[in-house]
Design a protein around this nucleic acid. Structure first.
Length: 169
DNA sequence: GCTGAGATTCTT
DNA sequence: AGAATCTCAGCA
C-alpha cells in the first residue's frame, strides 16, 4: 500500500522518524522495480529554520514546500547531485523530509543516482505516482537522532537541532 | 547580466 | 583540503 496524503500532512518531526523502515519504491519505464528500506531522514521545518530552504522565503524553487504534504521536492545541489525530499504538514506550512539514506546506498546523492531520481519528479505527488512511491508498513522500528549534516551556515540554534533520524538495526 | 553559495561525494 | 559542476537568488 502506498502511503497516503494524511501520513504526510502531519508535522515533519512526526513524519521524518515514521519514514524509517518503510520501503522507497522506484519503478523504471522498462518495468524494473527497486524497493529499499529507508534508513536515514532529516527534517527541515518552516521559515524560521535557517537550514530550511524556505527560510529564504517563497521563491520559484521553494514554492512546492508551501504546498500540502505528499508532494515531492527534488533539487540539484553542487551541480551534480539530486536531493529527494517529501513535503509535509499543511498548506502554507513549508516543511520537508530529506531522504538521506536507504539500505545499500548511504548518502542522499548516491541513492537518487542509484534509483535514477531526477527533478522530473519535482512537484509531483508521491502518493499517486506510478514510478516513485513509499510503501506503508506497520512494523515498529528503533532509531536514534543526531544533528543535521552540511548546514554549518544555519547558526548555533538551528544547526544543533537533533533533526536527523537514523534507523537502528 | 553577473556573482557567489550550496541539505554532496570522491579524490589527493 | 580540494575539485567537479550548475541552478537560483540577490544585486546592479
Amino acid at each position: 500500500m502506498k502511503l497516503s496524503q494524511s501520513f504526510f500532512q502531519r508535522d515533519v518531526l512526526e513524519v521524518a522518524p515514521d519514514l524509517l523502515g518503510k520501503k522507497l519504491v522506484r519503478k523504471l519505464a522498462d518495468g524494473t522495480i527497486y524497493s529499499y528500506t529507508i534508513t536515514e531522514t532529516e527534517a527541515y521545518k518552516g521559515e524560521d529554520d535557517l537550514a530550511c530552504h524556505a527560510s529564504k522565503g517563497r521563491t520559484p524553487r521553494t514554492e512546492v514546500m508551501y504546498w500540502e504534504g505528499g508532494y515531492i521536492y527534488v533539487y540539484l545541489i553542487y551541480g551534480m547531485y539530486y536531493m529527494l525530499n517529501v513535503v509535509t504538514s499543511k498548506k502554507e506550512n513549508p516543511q520537508a523530509v530529506l531522504i538521506r539514506g536507504i539500505e545499500n546506498y548511504n548518502g542522499p546523492g548516491k541513492l537518487t543516482k542509484a534509483l535514477s531520481i531526477t527533478n522530473e519528479f519535482n512537484k509531483q505527488l508521491i502518493t499517486m505516482n506510478e514510478s516513485l512511491w513509499i510503501d506503508d508498513s506497520v512494523k515498529k522500528v528503533k532509531f536514534r537522532t543526531d544533528v543535521r549534516v552540511g548546514i554549518d551556515y544555519a547558526g548555533e540554534i538551528w544547526k544543533n537541532k537533533p533533526w536527523r533520524f537514523i534507523l537502528i538495526e
